[in-house]
Design a binder for these strands. Sequence first.
DNA 1: CGCAGGTTTGACGTCTCTCAAGCCCAGTGG
DNA 2: CCACTGGGCTTGAGAGACGTCAAACCTGCG
Lengths: 259, 259
Amino acid sequence: MPLEYRQRGYVVVMDANVKSDVPLVLVESTETHCSQCQTRNACIAAKVPEDRLDILPRFLRSNDRIEAGTYLCRAGDLADRQYHVRSGMFKSSVLNAQGDEFITAFHLPGDIIGGIHQDGAYVESAIALETSSVCELKLDVLGQAAEPLLVSAVILHMCEKARDALDHRIALSQSSAQARFAAFCIHYAQKLTRLGRCAVFLPTPMSRTDLANCLGMTLESLSRVISKLNAAGVIQASRDHIDITEPDTLRAFALHTTL
Amino acid sequence: MPLEYRQRGYVVVMDANVKSDVPLVLVESTETHCSQCQTRNACIAAKVPEDRLDILPRFLRSNDRIEAGTYLCRAGDLADRQYHVRSGMFKSSVLNAQGDEFITAFHLPGDIIGGIHQDGAYVESAIALETSSVCELKLDVLGQAAEPLLVSAVILHMCEKARDALDHRIALSQSSAQARFAAFCIHYAQKLTRLGRCAVFLPTPMSRTDLANCLGMTLESLSRVISKLNAAGVIQASRDHIDITEPDTLRAFALHTTL
DNA sequence: CGCAGGTTTGACGTCTCTCAAGCCCAGTGG
DNA sequence: CCACTGGGCTTGAGAGACGTCAAACCTGCG
């Protein structure tokens, strides 16, 4: 499967099966083309009439390819822009006063990174978990632009994305570790569905440690839950992905609130 | 202390110490006056230059007084506007497929209600916990207005408010009930501080049941935590408020993550 | 082959949930 | 004024779940 990304004004197409720096194709790319983007149905483009998609590239800057392990932004940085994930996956996190890390979210295409401020600075840090790309939306441009279509789209999109955080919060208030994990899988699957991807194959580029942290449990508890659901035949988990074999059972577990 | 609210075009001032329906003062009010609002330092007005505050009432509609127990909006309603709390307190909640209720937040002045959408509908229901008032911001007006100051202010405010939800999420991932409760108190106190109110006196118009639900624990666990902190002299809790007597100790408890 | 990091499994202690009883307070009616 | 009543809150005892610590296990890599 060819790997396509954008770099210094070019669209670069690599052969993912061959470890090489020599691209298969190198196409000049003058700007972002939303109409050809795979994520256009899950980002602000989905809230703009299809025949007006051309207005977006005037406000969005599409970034070069971001390697796994690269920080997109850090807590405390000047919060002058939002990042909208185009491809790949990010994890965001915060540190408390003691230096404990909390993984706050895993971001898929269409998700907003840098949408949480305090005193004009980002609250979370975001790091790429795999090769990724984002679109940048500068806030001053947004204010000055006076482009009603863009403003509405951004605000609607922020409101819809707030739902992910809410889902996560609800999952966390479930007391049982199994219910939290099941809820995570179900929400993840729903997001993949909206992206037009397979709803039962969940890639897990994050470590078990990070996933456990995000779900508010220990690594061992997560491991036990996964082993149990594996043994029960509800999921089939490996190091880098989770296969949902019995979606209905998993959904039932997600609802099983012991609260 | 006089109680001031707005009703059918009048500003009504009541004597809160006397149980009567006869107002002390009745002033004609043609529109919202942000410059005189007690919440102006904690809402979108705080992101608009002071000498331009007059633009806001053109877009905001200030509601009549909302009695305790009144629903401001319900999950599933058409999400065509945001509510910005002006005074009082609300609680918002969601129901899952099983009918279990999850209290998702308690909203203080300056907070946004109705900022979470799915398919054009609200996800949460919000109900007043005491006599309250809100400002309405219609989304179509926001898009068409082309008023850069307003757009920037709303987006910045949404980004700052996203922080509350994040704080809640982090509090929920703490496994210890005591840490969750302590974190709730600390965040609550911080919000009161920003409103210019006392940071050690926390009114609790919500029931213990609702508070426990919001913190992802049982009523009994919450009660035990409160009793323990009471006995330790860290707080002094009664039915309708919590006094923080040792803020530093409480802060330390909030950080004590057993994760 | 050996190493290191991440992951799984096991044993044990602790914390929270559950169920149950008792308490406190406000409102009601005698 | 006082007993009654109901709801919300507190307290108690037991069971189950999760965290902790420790050891073993995989897996990719040199």
